[in-house]
Nucleic acid binder design. Structure first.
Length: 271
DNA sequence: AAAGCGCCCTGAAGGC
DNA sequence: TGCCTTCAGGGCGCTT
């Protein structure tokens, strides 16, 4: 479900409705998702939500008792608003009871997870501590990427999906960014030229920025509905278009498994 | 030690 | 109709 643009869209939606809202309690409907859920999260009550942040694809909810809840939506995680009187749906695993509404964490596949700790300790969380720069900050520039790719023999597509290199580039936008940059996804990361590296930084930022903007319109009600609304309305240039003509040169788009993930590219435009 | 692969889990879609 | 296989937007952890 979520790539960075969707997580950011969710964050904005939550912020709009829940910033400064009072949490009256939390219900854990199972003790674990991908990992055990800290029981302390289930005991959280009578606190105010003072900030909603995002780091990579992680959502952070800061409360005024100096504690922070961290959530990752995995592949199928969704956050939906619901009336407290409405019975939980199948796979609604965590219920956040706010004064005006419930916020429900639904995740069929349970690849997602939730953590809870002191806010000041959150940067030391084992998931956050190892992350590379955010793609939409100045820290992610061509000089940085060139250094990061140096000597790497793995495919460039795999490398830009490595969260230690840059966060938030998921499977769809990896293919889309490489297409726009004219770089073959199988290319060894360390063999990109400097102009190619600079182009890739630019297209990653472009693709994610455009997707956030599109997500912001087509997924405006994302957190309030079934989560899939409008997502596929995005017009991908290569993702899911294998066999269809390249929009630039009409060569059929190819699909290839790279790093166990489906990858789409134009064999003519991407070198 | 970088790189590659198996695996966690459910549900939707397609083939037969 | 139903049964089976394949695939899905993520990322950890083990092996080489």
């Amino acid at each position: 479900m979520p790539e960075l643009p969707e997580v950011e869209t969710v964050r904005r939606g939550l912020e709009k409705t829940l910033l400064n809202a009072r949490l009256t309690g939390v219900t854990l409907r199972r003790p674990d998702l991908r990992y055990p859920i800290p029981p302390a999260l289930g005991q959280l009550a009578n606190v105010r939500l003072i900030a909603l942040r995002r780091r990579a694809k992680y959502l952070l909810m800061d409360f005024d008792n100096s504690h922070t809840a961290l959530m990752h939506l995995g592949m199928s995680g969704r956050l939906t608003f619901a009336d407290a009187a409405t019975p939980p749906a199948k796979h609604d695993h965590i219920l956040f009871h706010f004064e005006e509404t419930d916020l429900r964490f639904n995740d069929a596949r349970r690849f997602g997870f939730a953590d809870f700790c002191l806010s000041e300790a959150i940067s030391h969380n084992r998931h956050l501590a190892v992350l590379g720069p955010e793609p939409l900050t100045d820290a992610f520039d061509s000089e940085y990427l060139h250094t990061s790719l140096s000597g790497k023999k793995s495919a460039i597509k795999t490398t830009i999906m490595d969260n230690a290199v840059v966060v938030g580039v998921g499977n769809i936008y990896a293919s889309e960014s490489l297409f726009r940059a004219g770089i073959a996804p199988t290319r060894a990361a360390g063999r990109l030229t400097r102009p190619q590296t600079a182009a890739l930084v630019t297209t990653i930022k472009q693709v994610l920025t455009e997707a956030i903007a599109a997500g912001g319109s087509s997924l405006r009600d994302y957190v309030q509905t079934d989560g899939s609304l409008g997502y596929f309305a995005h017009s991908f240039k290569v993702y899911g278009r294998d066999g269809h003509p390249c929009l630039t040169c009409a060569t059929p788009i190819r699909k290839k498994i790279i790093g166990q993930r489906s990858t789409f590219y134009c064999p003519n435009c991407q070198k």
